[in-house]
Design a binder for these strands. Structure first.
Length: 858
RNA sequence: GCGUGGGUGGCGAAAUCGGCAGACGCACAGGACUUAAAAUCCUGAGGGGUGUAAACUCCGUGUGGGUUCAAGUCCCACCCCACGCACCA
């Protein structure tokens, strides 16, 4: 179909359709971007966050980050680097599986079609990927190694002393342990736990977090129900994940987000004996200095001790409250809850500092999964406890000298001294936070009822989904209750074929309906076995794909060690992917998970660097022309296929770079791309005739000094701007170049050639064509980026500003070497300046060489 | 509430170390070419005021204050917007 706009533009535009196709074909045929493992050259590894190949195809936002990395890859190649710039597919996941459930089309088939479409679009945009290194997380050859890494985690424990992962066989088993396997399981980095999931009774399915709202809106009920889950012990790495942020060059906000997510907080754990039982409740607090003001305890409704503490009188109320809490979502428990709720258990604990009995409550403002799931409440000095105490008339005792009545409002300051805080053994009265903390924790420790501790918000990673379309977990369970991890020669454990991709209805995935999967004889042991029916979450494959690109076809290892050392570098503290570009939506989870796996691999020497990604950059979002987020319902979606059809790939690439700073969120403009398209046309006409031959105006003549300066300024600016990722200003500089040389009657060949080299990383198709017509027979992508000549930038004369009382009154050209005296003389001789200083006395002179002269008169 | 960015013409945006605010592009206006249009090329332009004009002059980078010969840039206080976290003891 012929596009309306193209008919209108037909004659006036350079033939981008023709040349873009031509050069894309050329690059394919000549393997221009194949990356050799040539260890003699310096390397540069630039990586895009690989996409999920959705049915919708490429979004207009995709080419933004991809163009940026493509420019850098092409530039670095022209600068003599061996550049690795790969692409692949993060193809396991829910949308494809859901599509398969409704259509019956196998997710692998749907994925293949989507990958084909994405590949077509990426090639259409002229990205110089080494397609021979393409990876797909859903291919058994790939997920073999995802499973291998899972087993590495499974077969590991974390040695706190050495601060690293070690093989589980090296775990020393205490003499009094009878069940050795159970003891090992408790220490593995991949382990099974009972963890609440989103269970929907009507659907008979576990829902992913992102599905919960959707189904609730449709009127289905979703309940938190504990189920058997695989977990990864990422919390063991919390401190290293926090510390090593120092090693990487990432945007401050992303580092900050990771820090907050890890959420380190230093405090103390204290034991409170429960009256009438042998139990003690452990609480975590960052304010042990306020322990004398702890007037009650609160347990999370899910706390396991609740059933032991509750008295018969309060049993019904407590049960009712627990049941209600179970069906509340996290959102309902936090954001929407304006008033605090809770119930008294009837039980009492002993405040070890005051020796007083204090009531034990349960309330959902205490989170089961943070700290110990229990708190000591100090209503005088904590806002949440204060609110709760007022609500339920619990005592409020001031133990930090406060500037106001703590009955009216909690005082949370740390600078005031403690009061009412002494017993027969210890006193912290008069001490401020730091000293009080030390003293009271010292006392608690001496008594054996408390110690200093560090808590993290970070939780262990729930590493299981009750779904079909994911990596199978390579563990089998035997009838006798034992289990066995697969050996490497048994990998990959491939997904079996199923009739129906829907979950089994029992809370298990469709794998549970495959007889051969859940009821078979294990060849190695001869025992009747059942394979794990959970699959891995979508994050799994993306945890290590950057390593697979280094050696994508290796069947003996996830990556050859020599290749790993070359591409990632051998300096543990500063190596890794040189540049990683992707959206902020992955600022926390993907990047944290990948760092975690990388550190485990590092502990075993499989990788050489502590961190996977040296430098990280987030491209901003492109909004619709109306300034709102693009969405089908708003009808403001721009489709890359249409834009390429109308203006060509080079124009789209260049426009997305010219739009503004790469990291900024900015709206699309249909008019804006026309301006960039005009620029490409002007560049074309600089070199080409209407008959696609070299313009007779391009001749071998020397450049004028002004032209020479513009040329070298352009080379300098474009090169520097690429290094700092300021692509918008490099495009502006190239526009200035074209404007200046369009005005020139004759176009010096040297200037044209060097300009084409500058343009090549940005608009590679038109650059190839111009390069060819300028007489070259090899690809411009393989040419060298020009060097700029510092001498050419030097100007003989500079314009300085002449000021009187800091107001600009005149300008003057002076020799670049003019002394302060000469500048002053020129200023004084200027009639405008004379006019303004006439009749007044010069009180002060400010002269900045090459910049300005300023007379202060009065 | 906390954290992190950011606020510059009609619009997207530039502006090394504090030194001509608004580069480059869009939109706009005028002109050339054309029978006409499109395309292309050239020119103009932050806002206000005085002036036939040349020109002159005042104001101007979210708001208020400060430092400085000089502030978009540095300091203090505040307002607004975006993103992230959000009862984390």
């Amino acid at each position: 179909m012929f596009h309306q706009l193209e008919v209108e533009r037909g004659m006036s535009s350079y033939p981008f359709h023709e040349i873009e196709k031509k050069w894309q074909q050329y690059w394919d045929e000549h393997h221009t971007f194949a990356t050799p493992d040539d260890f003699s050259k310096p390397k540069y590894y630039v990586l895009d966050m690989f996409p999920y190949p959705s049915g919708a195809g490429l979004h207009i936002g995709h080419p933004e980050g991809y163009t940026a990395t493509d420019i850098i890859a092409r530039y670095k190649r022209m600068k003599g680097f061996n550049v690795l710039h790969p692409m692949g597919w993060d193809a396991f996941g829910l949308p494809t599986e859901r599509y398969s459930m409704t259509t019956g089309i196998h997710p692998a088939t749907a994925t293949a079609a989507n990958v084909m479409n994405f590949t077509r679009q990426l090639k259409m945009l002229g990205f110089g990927y080494d397609w021979s290194r393409q990876v797909n997380t859903t291919y058994p050859q790939y997920y073999k190694w995802t499973q291998w890494m899972f087993l590495l985690l499974y077969n590991s424990w974390y040695d706190e002393k050495e601060q690293r992962a070690r093989y589980i066989d090296e775990l020393s088993i205490p003499a009094d342990v009878s069940d050795v396997e159970a003891y090992k399981d408790e220490h593995r980095l991949a382990f099974i736990a009972m963890i609440p999931v989103n269970w929907c009774e009507e659907l008979g399915t576990v829902l992913a977090n992102e599905e919960v709202d959707e189904w609730k809106e449709k009127g289905y009920s979703v309940e938190r129900r504990p189920m058997r889950q695989w977990m990864l012990r990422i919390t063991k790495y919390a401190q290293r994940l926090l510390d090593d942020l120092e090693l990487v060059d990432w945007v401050a906000s992303t580092k900050e987000m990771q820090k907050n997510w890890i959420g380190k907080s230093e405090g103390a754990e204290v034991q409170f004996p429960i009256l009438g039982t042998e139990d003690t409740v452990r609480v975590f607090t960052t304010r042990p200095d306020t322990i004398f003001g702890a007037t009650y305890l609160v347990l999370a409704p899910e706390h396991p001790f609740v059933k032991d503490i509750v008295t018969a009188e309060f049993a019904d109320a407590v049960k009712e409250y627990q049941d209600k809490a179970a069906v509340k979502s996290d959102l309902e428990r936090t954001e929407l809850a304006k008033e605090k709720t809770g119930v008294f258990t009837g039980g009492f604990a002993l405040n070890p500092a005051t020796g007083e009995p204090i009531p034990v409550w349960i309330a959902d403002y205490v989170l089961a999964h943070y700290g110990t799931g229990a708190i000591m409440a100090v209503p005088a000095h904590d806002e949440r406890d204060h609110e709760f105490a007022r609500q339920f008339n619990l005592p409020i005792t001031e133990v930090i000298e406060s500037p106001h009545d703590v009955y009216e409002q909690a005082f949370t300051g740390k600078d005031s001294p403690c009061v009412n805080s002494s017993n027969a053994e210890v006193s912290i009265d008069g001490l401020a936070y730091n000293e009080a903390f030390k003293t009271i924790v010292g006392w608690l420790k001496e008594k054996g009822i408390g110690h200093r501790t560090i808590n993290y918000k970070l939780r262990d990673w729930l590493f299981a989904r009750q779904r079909y379309w994911g990596e199978p977990i390579p563990i089998m369970f035997f009838e006798d209750g034992t289990k066995r991890a697969l050996d490497i020669d048994e990998l990959p454990l491939e997904l079996p074929e199923v009739e129906d991709f829907k979950p089994a209805g029992t809370g298990e995935s469709a794998l549970a309906t495959v007889e051969a999967w859940v009821n078979f004889i294990d060849k190695k042991t001869g025992k009747r076995a059942r394979m794990e029916t959970n699959t891995m979450p979508q994050w799994a494959g993306s945890c290590w794909y950057y390593l697979r690109f280094l050696d994508p076809h290796n069947d003996a290892a996830f990556c050859d060690p020599a290749k790993e050392k070359y591409w990632m570098g051998t300096n543990a503290d500063s190596g890794g992917v040189d540049l990683y570009v992707g959206g902020t939506e992955h600022a926390v989870l993907h990047l944290l998970y990948a760092r975690f796996w990388h550190k485990v691999l590092f502990d075993y020497g499989y990788v050489s660097t502590k961190e996977p990604f040296t430098k990280l950059f987030h491209q901003g979002m492109i909004l619709g022309e109306d300034g709102r987020k693009m969405s089908k319902s708003l009808g403001n979606v721009i489709n890359p296929d249409d834009v390429v059809q109308d203006y060509g790939a080079d124009a789209l690439r260049l426009y997305e770079m010219f739009l503004g700073p790469l990291e900024a969120t900015k709206p699309w403009s249909g008019k804006g791309i026309e301006g960039v398209s005009r620029f490409l046309n002007r560049a074309w006409r600089l070199v080409m005739t209407e008959h696609k031959t070299l313009s007779p105006d391009v001749v071998d003549i020397p450049l004028t000094p002004e032209q020479n300066r513009t040329l070298h300024q352009t080379i300098k600016k474009v090169g520097e701007d690429i290094e700092t990722m300021s692509f918008n200003t490099s495009v502006a500089q190239m526009m200035m170049f074209v404007n200046e040389f369009t005005a020139a009657e004759k176009k010096p060949r040297e200037a044209m050639e060097k300009f084409v080299l500058c343009l090549a990383p940005f608009a590679p198709h038109i650059a190839e064509e111009l390069w060819q017509v300028l007489g070259h027979t090899t690809s411009v992508a393989l040419a060298s980026f020009p060097e700029y000549d510092e001498n050419a930038l030097v100007q003989n004369e500079v314009e300085i500003i002449l000021q009187v009382n800091s107001k600009i009154r005149a300008k003057a050209m002076v020799g670049v070497t003019a002394s302060e005296g000469e500048m002053e003389a020129i200023a004084l001789a200027n009639p405008e300046i004379q006019k303004h200083i006439d009749g007044k006395s010069i009180k002060k002179k400010i002269i900045v060489q090459g910049k300005l002269v300023n007379f202060i008169v009065g």
